[in-house]
Each structure stands twice: as C-alpha cells, then as structure tokens.
C-alpha cells in the first residue's frame, strides 16, 4: 500500500510518514488535499477521480525523484486517490522528510504542484443542481507549435514555481 502512487481505496497517511527512519532529518512537511464543497460558486456534492494509470504512476515517480534531486531531500512520497470521493475525503497526500524545515516546505509544495499539473488524473465534479463537469484548467500537452498560445507555459511555470 505505501508503495502505491495511485489508490482506489482511502489513503492512509501514517504509512507514508516514515517517522522511524531518516535519523538525519529534522523536518517532515506534509500536504493533504481534501475534497471541498464548492467550485466557482457552485455547490459540489461529490467527486470522481479517474486517471491514465500507467502514465500517472510514472509521472508521480518522476516528480518524487526530481523533488529529491532538486531540493536535496532523502524522502518524497506522493499518493493520489482514484474513484468516488465524498466531501472531506483525502484526494492527495505528499510527505517530504528533510534535514531542515525550509527545504521540507519548499519541496513539498513543488511536488504537489508538479503532480497536480503533470499527472493525467481527471477530476469530475458533481453539483447540487444535478449537473457534473470535468475541471479542465491545465494542459498536459507540452509540444504545441511555436507561436501557438496555450496554457502549457502557464502550467510549466506553476510546476517549477
């Protein structure tokens, strides 16, 4: 379970903390994303996450490795939930262990943003008015023709912020 990057079952935070490891680390930063009850003025009653699982798992593994390399931290783990979620359910967990808090916070934010912007995991929202929609804010595609103005640069800026 703790090795999985994607889970169709509720996420377990404790398994990711590795508090009994990494004696060189004096910091643990964690982000937990939960399902909120509104989006652009609409009341959200539930969500469904779907993914291209092989690519999503690879992207998450690559983000974990890039985060360790970029921030010099020994441990970074990200798990994303898939399937039907209720308000308040955990959608994503990211844990970073680091020698000091500054790089722990920075690395955790970087990893969450990079997964959110790069992994093919789609959020379908279900609204109180009976409607539903996929939220599409960020292109994964990165090979637009030159001169083509799209939001991929925006996504990349976020991923590297």
């Amino acid at each position: 379970m703790s090795e999985a990057t994607l889970s169709h079952e509720p996420l377990s935070i404790d398994a990711l903390l590795e508090l009994d490891a990494h004696p060189e680390c004096g910091g643990l930063a964690m982000f937990v994303g939960t399902v909120r009850d509104h989006h652009e003025g609409k009341t959200v009653t539930a969500l469904a996450y779907t993914a291209h699982e092989p690519v999503a798992a690879r992207v998450i593994r690559e983000v974990e490795a890039a985060t360790r390399e970029r921030f010099g931290v020994p441990y970074c783990r990200v798990q994303h939930r898939l399937g039907a979620l209720a308000i308040g359910d955990i959608a994503i967990v990211c844990v970073v262990r680091a020698p000091h808090r500054a790089e722990a916070f920075e690395a955790c934010r970087y990893a969450v943003d990079a997964v959110k912007h790069g992994a093919p995991i789609w959020k379908e929202e279900f609204y109180a008015d009976g409607g539903s929609a996929f939220v599409e804010g960020c292109c994964i595609r990165d090979d637009f023709d030159a001169g083509h103005t799209h939001d991929h640069d925006h996504a990349r800026d976020h991923a590297s912020a």
Binding site: H52, H117, A119, W122, K123, V135, G137, C138, I140
Partner: peptide
C-alpha cells in the same frame, strides 16, 4: 495512442 485531456491543475 492514448489521448489525455487537460487536468484540473488547481
């Protein structure tokens, strides 16, 4: 070929 639409991002 799999086609991957935009994600929520936020």
């Amino acid at each position: 070929i799999a086609l991957l639409p935009p994600v929520a991002g936020g």
